[in-house]
Amino acid sequence: MSIQHFRVALIPFFAAFCLPVFAHPETLVKVKDAEDQLGARVGYIELDLNSGKILESFRPEERFPMMSTFKVLLCGAVLSRVDAGQEQLGRRIHYSQNDLVKYSPVTEKHLTDGMTVRELCSAAITMSDNTAANLLLTTIGGPKELTAFLHNMGDHVTRLDRWEPELNEAIPNDERDTTMPAAMATTLRKLLTGELLTLASRQQLIDWMEADKVAGPLLRSALPAGWFIADKSGASERGSRGIIAALGPDGKPSRIVVIYTTGSQATMDERNRQIAEIGASLIKHW
């Protein structure tokens, strides 16, 4: 058993032996400061991975655009179909130039040979490839079927209504393609630790998130040596930015963190910096 498999397999085991986890309101002070700095709403939640207890939250039940963070949920739905014998990670999917949409750094290189379902999930999560996400959405029946999958998990909040890139429109008060921090954190925890997916599929999902290559300026920039993080970021119109993550010290995840912001006029660099500073406060007061 690899170190990674050891880590995921023991998450339920550690729940019975973990020390009490204490919240630190200092992080919420930073979240509120980020709102002031960005001139935008910020949603935040910090969840204990083992118990599911909410440690801190700010606007946990307000809607925010999901942006590309939905791609983790999408690959969770794909893995659920794999577990049920309805899909194979090794199945190759062929597509054409007409299928390519904006920001497809991986799929645009494989027009001649296509990509496997496994490769598409990797591209969608680690590189946020939009065509990969659309191709995967097609395999499960489209955005409405992803919403149905989430409903069956008990998440009646999170919804996907459109495809890439239209889902990134982020119109104020538009509930399409949105979630709430509390709903996203709970759903992510179920995917990573619950019985919905097999152990192998849970491991695969967290491996893809751990290999994320496009979230460096966010929480990863504040991470001390030896800490673990598996994450997925997102960005969209109207100053929207977000990240969902499982992270913790000693090389294993122990908390879920979800951060969303929307409605800012700030630059992408400034949005990144504010999220990184929230992460730094979280780690300092861990």
Rank of each mutant, 00 (worst) to 15 (best):
I3Y: 14
I3A: 10
Q4E: 12
Q4S: 14
Q4L: 13
V8Q: 12
A9P: 13
L10C: 10
L10S: 11
I11L: 09
P12A: 14
A15S: 15
A15L: 15
A16S: 15
L19S: 13
L19G: 13
V21A: 14
P25T: 08
E26K: 08
L28M: 07
K30E: 02
Q37E: 12
G39R: 12
R41D: 05
R41I: 06
V42M: 10
G43D: 00
Y44A: 00
Y44M: 06
Y44V: 04
Y44S: 00
D48A: 06
D48N: 04
N50D: 15
N50G: 15
K53L: 11
K53G: 08
K53V: 14
L55R: 06
E56C: 07
S57A: 14
R59S: 12
E61F: 15
E61I: 09
E62R: 04
F64V: 03
P65C: 03
M66R: 00
M67V: 07
L74T: 03
C75G: 08
A77R: 09
V78T: 06
S80E: 14
S80P: 00
R81A: 09
V82A: 10
V82M: 04
V82R: 05
D83V: 01
D83N: 02
D83I: 01
D83E: 09
A84G: 13
G85T: 05
G85K: 15
G85D: 10
G85W: 05
Q86E: 13
E87V: 06
E87I: 09
Q88D: 15
L89V: 04
G90R: 09
G90D: 15
R91F: 03
S96A: 14
S96R: 14
D99L: 09
V101G: 04
Y103S: 07
P105Q: 04
E108V: 12
E108G: 13
D113Q: 13
D113T: 11
M115V: 04
V117I: 10
R118T: 14
C121S: 04
D129N: 00
A132G: 03
A133D: 01
L136P: 00
L136S: 00
L136V: 05
L137P: 00
T139Q: 14
T139R: 09
P143Q: 02
K144Q: 14
E145T: 10
F149N: 03
L150C: 09
G154R: 03
G154A: 03
D155N: 12
H156Q: 13
V157A: 12
R159T: 06
L160F: 08
L160G: 01
L160P: 01
R162Q: 08
R162S: 12
W163T: 07
E166G: 10
L167A: 06
N168D: 07
N168P: 02
A170D: 15
A170T: 13
I171R: 10
P172F: 08
P172T: 10
D174I: 02
E175M: 12
E175G: 07
D177S: 01
D177G: 01
D177R: 00
T178P: 00
T179Q: 00
T179P: 00
T179E: 00
M180K: 13
M180C: 15
M180G: 09
P181I: 01
A182T: 11
A183I: 07
A183V: 09
T186K: 15
T186Q: 12
T186H: 15
T186S: 15
T187I: 03
L188P: 00
L188V: 09
L188Y: 05
R189V: 06
L191I: 10
L192S: 02
L192I: 15
T193L: 12
E195D: 14
L197Q: 02
L197H: 02
L197A: 01
T198M: 08
T198G: 10
S201V: 02
S201C: 07
R202T: 13
Q203H: 10
Q203R: 14
W208G: 00
A211C: 12
D212E: 03
D212S: 05
D212A: 02
V214D: 05
A215I: 01
A215E: 05
G216D: 11
P217Q: 11
L218C: 03
L218P: 03
L218N: 03
L218K: 01
L219H: 01
S221P: 06
A222I: 15
L223N: 01
L223A: 06
P224D: 02
P224I: 01
A225R: 13
A225V: 12
A225T: 13
G226Y: 03
G226A: 05
G226T: 07
W227F: 04
F228Y: 15
S233A: 09
S236L: 03
E237W: 07
E237V: 12
R238S: 15
R238N: 15
R238M: 13
R238V: 11
R238T: 13
R238I: 10
S240W: 01
I243C: 05
I244H: 00
I244P: 00
A246T: 07
A246L: 13
L247R: 00
K252I: 12
P253L: 06
S254I: 07
S254M: 12
R255A: 01
I256V: 09
I256A: 02
T262A: 11
T262V: 11
T262S: 14
G263D: 13
G263A: 12
S264R: 07
Q265R: 13
A266W: 02
A266E: 08
A266C: 12
T267Q: 09
T267S: 14
T267R: 09
M268S: 07
D269G: 10
E270V: 13
R271G: 09
I275V: 08
A276D: 03
A276E: 08
A276T: 06
E277V: 08
A280V: 10
A280D: 12
L282C: 06
I283T: 04
I283V: 14
H285E: 04
